[in-house]
Structures are given as C-alpha cells and as structure tokens.
Design a protein around this nucleic acid. Structure first.
Length: 306
DNA sequence: AATTGGACGTATTTGCGACG
DNA sequence: CGTCGCAAATACGTCCAATT
C-alpha cells in the first residue's frame, strides 16, 4: 500500500519565496489569481527524498486543464473554461511587481513568456520565464508552502492574499505590515485611498472570511503615527511546531500542527452572520508524545524577531 | 481645509442552466 | 468541450454630511 518516491505531491502545494508572495499582481481578478497559483503549484515540488527542487531542476512548461481547475476550486464547469481563457490573457499581459531587498525599488517581472489556450481540449499551456525562477529558489528561511486546498473556499482575493501573507508568519502568531505594503500586496492600486474604505472593504472582510474557514482567530490592531493609521498588526493563533527527535539515531524531524478547518454548514451558508466566538478551541497539542518507533517528541515554539 | 464613514448607484464578476 | 445569456453577488467610484 505504501508508495515511495513520489515526485508529485498528491495535494497540490504552492511554493513561493516571501518576496514573490508579497508581490503585486496587477489587475488579476480572483479567478485569474487562482489560475496563477495553480500553475505555480505545478512549478514547485520535491524530489523523491522530500528535498525541495531547485529552480534549475524545475520543469518550465505546464498544462492546466479546466477540469482540474474546476475541481480544485469548485468552479462550475462552463465557467472554468472562461476562467482559463481570460487568465491566459492576463498572464501574458500583466507583470507582477516584486520589492527589491533593502531599497524602495521594485522589479517588474513577467510570469510567463508563452501561453496558449488549447482549443477543444479545455486546457492551457504556459511557459514560465527565466525571471520568475529565482523567486522559487528554496531557501530555508521563511520559504512558504501551503496546500492549494487551504484557500479553495475563499471568495475574495483579499482573503486569499492575507492568508498567504500570514503563512509567512504562521509560527509567530503576528505580523506587522505597513499600509503601503498591504496596499501593494493587495494590489489595490489607486483604489480605496480613504483608509476607512480600505479597511472595511479589504482588511475586515478578509479577516472574517479566514475566520469563517479556519480556527485561526485573526484580528488586527491599527498602529498609528499621530492621528493616522500607518500600519496594521495582525494577530492570530500560531501553528504549533513539533520537533521530533529520534533517540536512537539522533535524527530530527519537524511537524506542523495546522489550523483546524471549520466545517461549514452548507444549509446556512447563504447568509452567514457573524460567527460567535463559540468556536471550539484548537486541540491542545500534546506536550509529550509517547515513544513511537523511537521517535520522542516535545513541543517547541519558535519565535521570530521582526 | 482636510479627513472620515456611510450610503447608494453603477460596473464588473461569478454562478448556473440550457443547449449544441 | 464550449457558447450564450441571464440573475445574483461583489467590487468600485463618488457624493455628502459629520468630524477634527
């Protein structure tokens, strides 16, 4: 029954460097963005030993079918074709903007150099550019990976983006972003110049939607400089990190205890009023796990300095 | 004078079924 | 697999009155 040497993860995962994660994606609609993410999930990967593949080893050309897209995001059949078609246009026309380290400059890069919609087969072929590859380099520090399925229930792009941003800090439990950074990552452009509008139309609904789907308890505080808000501090339940040590071999492993997914009652889904804080608490992670084939584990929390 | 929050009308997206 | 077209849901721009 057990299968070894899997090259492709059964659950599609998105691999990104923080910079790519923080990038601005122009005028992608939510569906365009999902197509882009799904393509990214085909790009990254691990080898048979579970090691991340480095850019040189990655395949550049990928195919995405309307069917698999529809299944992943529960998009009705006819619509997924249209979605792919439109996304092809966007992917070719739009470039993404990535902040450069230590400066206020931005790089604008194209995601793909070729894209085609294969008629009668309902799929797209795209070829990623050289420019995006460095951002897929798997460096240990804060490299982020998450399951595509994790975001499949989000309806708004801001929820998706906020969720992605929070993934970088999932072990920390909080994240501070300046308004400018947020506006950049949310790609709002010149929209919502009024802070109140920005808040009520992006930050608040995004937090609500994430909490609707996960026991994550995201909330935020406004950080003010004088009277005006300049940054937002997001606070949420961090994931637990289990460090496993094999006493006999001295080998170590790391396990993450993710946020529990909420089960959404489909019957009441149409009009979800604000969820009361009767949410079940996260199952407390065991402080000690019994010896299990030589693996002894203890809970270690990691803190990261900002 | 400049900022904010609410409200409202319009434009854009999305969901869905019929159908070829 | 793919098109069409309509209805519902969201997103967005803008105006206005209250606030500082």
């Amino acid at each position: 029954m057990k299968k070894k040497e899997t090259y492709e993860s059964k659950t599609p995962k998105v691999y990104k460097s923080p910079k790519l994660n923080q990038s601005n994606f122009g005028d992608f609609t939510h569906t365009d963005y999902l197509v882009y993410l799904m393509l990214l999930s085909k790009l990254g990967g691990v080898d048979k030993n579970g090691k991340y593949l480095q850019p040189e080893e990655l395949k550049r050309e990928h195919t995405l079918s309307a069917k698999e897209f529809g299944q992943m995001f529960k998009v009705a059949q006819p619509h997924s074709y249209v979605a792919l078609k439109k996304a092809v246009n966007k992917l070719l026309k739009t470039d993404i903007t990535v902040p450069e380290d230590g400066t206020n400059s931005y790089w604008r890069i194209n995601v793909c150099s070729q894209a085609k919609y294969v008629k009668d087969e309902g799929k797209i072929n795209i070829k990623f550019t050289d420019d995006i590859m460095p951002y897929l380099k798997q460096v240990k520090e804060r490299f982020m990976v998450y399951n595509l399925a994790d975001i499949s229930n989000f309806k708004s792009i801001y929820a998706t983006r906020l969720f992605e941003l929070l993934q970088e800090f999932k072990e920390t439990g909080w994240m501070i972003k300046s308004l400018d950074e947020l506006r950049h990552s949310f790609s709002v452009g010149s929209k919502y110049t009024n802070y109140g509008h920005f808040k009520s139309r992006t930050i608040v609904p995004a937090c609500e939607e994430i909490n609707k789907n996960y026991h994550m308890k995201v909330r935020f505080e406004e950080i003010k400089d004088g009277k005006s808000v300049t940054a937002i501090k997001f606070i949420f339940k961090p994931v637990l990190v289990l460090k496993l040590i094999n006493e006999t071999t001295g080998e170590t492993k790391t396990r993450f205890i993710k946020h529990e997914k909420k089960i959404i009652d489909i019957t009441s889904q149409t009009k979800l009023t604000k969820l009361k804080s009767t949410d079940k608490k996260l199952k407390p992670a065991p402080k000690k796990i019994k010896k299990n084939g030589g693996w002894l584990s203890s809970v270690i929390k990691f803190f990261r300095k900002k």
